[in-house]
């Protein structure tokens, strides 16, 4: 399946990926409104990790053998049969955070509402995820490898 890959050698650490992810997952989809009114409710699915000048964008790897799927006690964490993406059904998530504990990439986080796990959903079937579209230096790519 197509996955998102980081090219750390070209990541600026600007965090525009996080910003655009937040906007994409907001209700309004408008950047200023999303930041003014919804910032506290949305957790971006992508995080920029940095140590010195080394930075890269990290999001769910949508592992073939996903520990979060194994660990989920309610079946909220599931794999989309069509796309292969690992997704979290917020309605079924009870907030036990076992997925957060087991994710080897640290890519599953508690949602800002503290109720359900939050993670990358590959922009819910969009042709290209917004972090990839908006990276100013093409340091995030979406491709089959």
């Amino acid at each position: 399946m197509k996955r998102i890959y980081a090219r750390e050698e070209f990541c600026l650490g600007c965090r525009l990926c996080e910003i655009q992810c937040l906007v994409r997952h907001s209700k309004s989809k408008k950047i200023i409104k999303a930041f003014r009114q919804e910032r506290d409710q949305i957790t971006p699915g992508v995080m920029v990790e940095s140590a010195g000048h080394v930075t890269f964008a990290m999001q769910c790897r949508h592992c073939d053998s996903a520990p979060c799927l194994e660990a989920c006690i309610t079946g909220a964490m599931h794999r989309d049969p069509k796309t292969g993406a690992v997704l979290c059904d917020a309605d079924r998530c009870v907030g036990c955070w076992m997925c957060v504990m087991t994710c080897p990439a640290g890519a599953v986080r508690r949602g800002k509402d503290q109720k359900a796990a939050s993670k990358c959903d590959l922009c819910a079937g969009d042709k290209t995820p917004v972090c990839v579209l908006n990276c100013p230096n093409e340091a995030i790519v979406y491709e089959e490898r």
Partner: peptide, 14 residues
């Protein structure tokens, strides 16, 4: 100020 969302991209880039 009506447009700035305090995202700090400018802070990280300058």
């Amino acid at each position: 100020p009506a447009r700035c969302i305090q995202c700090q991209v400018c802070v990280r880039q300058c």
